[in-house]
Design a protein around this nucleic acid. Sequence first.
RNA 1: GCCGACGUAGCUCAGCGGCAGAGCAACUGUUUCGUAAACAGUAGGUCCCCGGUUCAAAUCCGGGCGUCGGCUCCA
Length: 596
Amino acid sequence: MSTQSKPSAEQMAYHGGEMEQDSPLDTMRHSAAHIMAAAVLEMFPDARFAIGPAIENGYYYDFELPRSLTPDDFPEIEERMARLRKADNPFERAELSRSEALEAFGDQPYKVEIINDLPEDATISVYKQAHFTDLCRGPHVPSAGQVGPFKLLSVAAAYWRGDEKRPQLQRLYGTAWATQQELDDYLWRLEEAKKRDHRRIGKDLDLFMVSEQIGGGLVTWLPKGATIRRELENFIIKAEERGGYKHLYSPHIAKIELYMTSGHWQHYRDSMYSPIKVEEEQYILRPMNCPHHIMAYKNSLHSYRELPLRLAELGTVYRYEKSGELTGMSRVRGFTINDAHIFCRPDQLREEFVRVVELIQELYQAVGFRDYVYRVSLRDPADTEKYVGGDEMWQLAENAIREALDSIGAEYVEAVGEAAFYGPKLDIMVRDVLGREFAASTNQVDLYLPERFELEYVDADGSRQRPAMIHRAPIGSLERFFAFLTEQHAGAFPVWLSPVQAVVIPIADRHAGYAEEVATRLREADVRVEVDARSERMNSKIRDAQMQKVPYMLVVGDREAEAGAASVRLRSGEDLKAQPMDEVIRMVTEDIREHR
RNA sequence: GCCGACGUAGCUCAGCGGCAGAGCAACUGUUUCGUAAACAGUAGGUCCCCGGUUCAAAUCCGGGCGUCGGCUCCA
């Protein structure tokens, strides 16, 4: 039964929105999971078994065991698995009636639960591998010997059926491949990925820090990271101003009543911090910007002629995240959203949403951000508790998003149950170096908050009408976006974003004066440039600049000083030889201007 | 928050009951060099915190805090 678990939205996104047939590799990995379970059964005869599917790059199996497994147990489990593989027993399939199955798995409560959840007409099959018989849909490889090279990777806790109120099981992760070479390659890729981890690079390049004294999940952008952020912010604001957005600033805290009106206090409280008492009034750190922008909208009466009104802010919000889920810059407790709220007539929704998607594409293009997937996050019609508003409202909002994407031919996957409590979303999903999936951007159609706040505009006939709203955040939070940007570029940011765009490297101390002249000329052209005037060898300075991923290294010695030139080395290692200073300045400033 | 692993110099890590260590970085001196690491020296520690065991604890035990990997949740 192990493969019959419902695919998560993440898995669906990875498979491009369709459940694929089990590939031969998936089948083999799923068989590896059975062999691992058989090995665990040898060690723990009382083990209870949950599920053990193939996943991207490997497999896992969830167990309930009398004691916790640790990595020290891996060698023994792997040895037992190797023996089972060598014994090469067949995977034998049998079909059981419901009562036979319940009888056979009487001492396996998780299997019993799965059987009871199966539809009436389901075929119930089991697979026997050596001494281990498992409830399973299959398919499997013919015999244990067909399982490829494998390795156990980690052990972690996982709640039964993903529910934190239910028992916690031990999940053993493994990987398996068709050949030893592929296994080695995969393990090597894992190591390489760690080198691109934004936390590693953030430390190496002095981009940001998280201090225990300040608090977990509270990020300090160090000067170099702050430079990148400021460039991004300026770029975003300019693009948005071109797109008709008006930027504003609003405070980070507000009276609690504001968030009661919006419904956040009722529906989003788990993510909000406790109120702060100020002179008999309760204030809270805002978890979202929308109520503030709505108040800005309500500050004056609006004509239909003004719509769409697009109010934007790089708005800082604070959300409570459990300590165990904080990570570097990608999961934090205080962050700044590239936020905006578009107030428009309902008939303008589709076109406005198209413009939102186009803006996203423009921004991503400019920063060299490529690997992402559109996900339309829909309401789960079965779970009405979680959402507000009626069917009609949801349908209108969901259709606006789908139609917008269809009209520009964008491909997307749909994820039921991932909507916000007040509306469906277009999420843009990206993966970090370790393959974990995050939303980089969320964009929502909202017909609910205008209702809650009784928003109005004056229509052509003088009547009062209710506007629709779009919440949009093309790059989501600056923190998370920065994390992915860092990983995608492995710290070698495009020139226009690089904190240090050029380093001037004098060959000997006597060239320091000329190096300063070179730097001054670049500074006058608004290039971020530093002079490495240490009494080090040129080779050493080049190495340091390379490690800092500085895009331009400008070596100057006697020849360059004589000619009014600089020798240009790029971080790719390419040596462009001596270039006149005018040419050097032209190259660098062109890269910056063209966002290269 | 839950399960597991890990917390030693600014960074990366060794040491695992008996004097606190290495490389890199920093600092000082020598070297003035042509495209990825010159040489020598100096300094740097609450071994995460609190408690316990022991003649003796970085090391063993208990509790706490933090980080990391998962789970749940999410920008």
